[in-house]
Amino acid sequence: MRKAVHYSKLISLMVVSTTAFIFSCSTDEDEESLGNWINRSVFDGSPRSGMSGFTIGNIGYMGVGYDGDDYLNSFWTYDIEGDFWSQKADFPGSARNAAVGFQIDGKGYIGSGYDGVDELNDFYTYDPSSNTWTQVASIESTKRRSAVAFSANGFGYFGTGYDGENDRKDFWKYDPSSDTWTEQVGFGGNKRRSATTFTINGLIYLGTGISNGIYLNDFWAFDPSNESWTKKTDLDEEGNYNIERSRAVGFSLNGYGYIACGEINGASTSVWEYDPATDMWEAKTNFEGSSRQDAVAFANTTRAFVGLGRSGSLYLDDLDEFFPLAEYDEED
């Protein structure tokens, strides 16, 4: 009798474990997408979100942000080849988050944002060759946070965002040779905050973001040669698209664009790949770290990293490298 009891226990345990094993396998197969993430570095003990940054060559630059207690003005570099961090000269403006970062011809720029009280309109440039910051022209007529910025053909472009009262849709162009901002017309999309851009072959793609609680589904391409905006296929065009979100990161790699992480009614780990040749999207392997929003992405022509950012009330501090063509491997 005792023997029978033991055997039944044994069998039930085996059934449970086999079921669990089959279930985990089948889940993997159901969600099979190409792309793999490998954890590269731990920015240990320095959780921060809402940072701003840019990539120049093999160095990722990131700074400012919010750590849950304080707005920050420290500034760091991540060495993509060496896989280590260095603390650089402090950002000279007031500590802030939700600023924009971009680079023009090897010099970095960080500006706008939110200091905990007010939206901001001041901008600063960083020279990597001398590790020095210098203030440049502010956008006098408007302060804002959660805007987007990018560069093309030696100019900076800044637009959308939240000015403290309203979401915005206007764009501004920065000319570093004259240190001036001028307003640009022609963006036909909706006003929004916390949108995302990426650049492929000289064209800038802009999408996602949120306004009045609505996640926006329009998607745009900006051609800097004639400074025109073209509407592309909506982000909810296909039934299986799940791209709309805010506070995502955007980057490009090998001729494809990526929108990763962010939040849609909660933090997300999903990653979508945009093919400019077909104007279509494909789901990639989800970010393997915890779900996060307000993260940072570093990408040069050959490698891309996503990390930091926050998920709910939990701040995260790691950086993962994305290999879009690799098979998913849960062991790395």
Partner: peptide
């Protein structure tokens, strides 16, 4: 340099926080 186990976390060739090298 700051190491965590066998992992180089921070390499600081210049004084942090201030302008210049």
């Amino acid at each position: 340099e700051i190491w965590i186990g066998e992992k180089l976390l921070v390499k600081q060739e210049f004084i942090p926080a201030i302008n210049g090298e």
